[in-house]
């Protein structure tokens, strides 16, 4: 029940939006994310968009790990 689904905003209405979830479209409430724009991704829980997903932050967190692993690999090569 707790895990939300990422969905892309296709069309924005006043209190709701049409979103695309892995190819299927549905209507979700946007009362918690009134500032959302078309093309942005949101997390949907029980029919409501709960937050927008910040792609930059998601990328940075993956890159951060990549750098750590790469640094360790090069340390091992040097040793």
């Amino acid at each position: 029940m707790c895990v939300g689904v990422p969905a892309k905003i296709i069309e924005k209405k006043e209190y709701s939006a049409i979103v695309d979830v892995l190819g299927s479209q549905m209507e979700v409430g946007i009362i918690f994310v009134p500032e959302v724009s078309v093309g942005e991704y949101v997390v949907v829980h029980a029919g409501q968009a709960m937050t927008t997903i910040d792609e930059e932050a998601a990328k940075i967190s993956i890159e951060e790990w990549r750098k750590l692993v790469d640094a360790r690999d090069s340390e091992q090569v040097i040793r």
Partner: peptide, 13 residues
């Protein structure tokens, strides 16, 4: 989980 969680949370909620 910074891509979804802010410092102060969702104020509308």
């Amino acid at each position: 989980h910074k891509c979804m969680v802010s410092k102060s949370g969702n104020l509308h909620a």
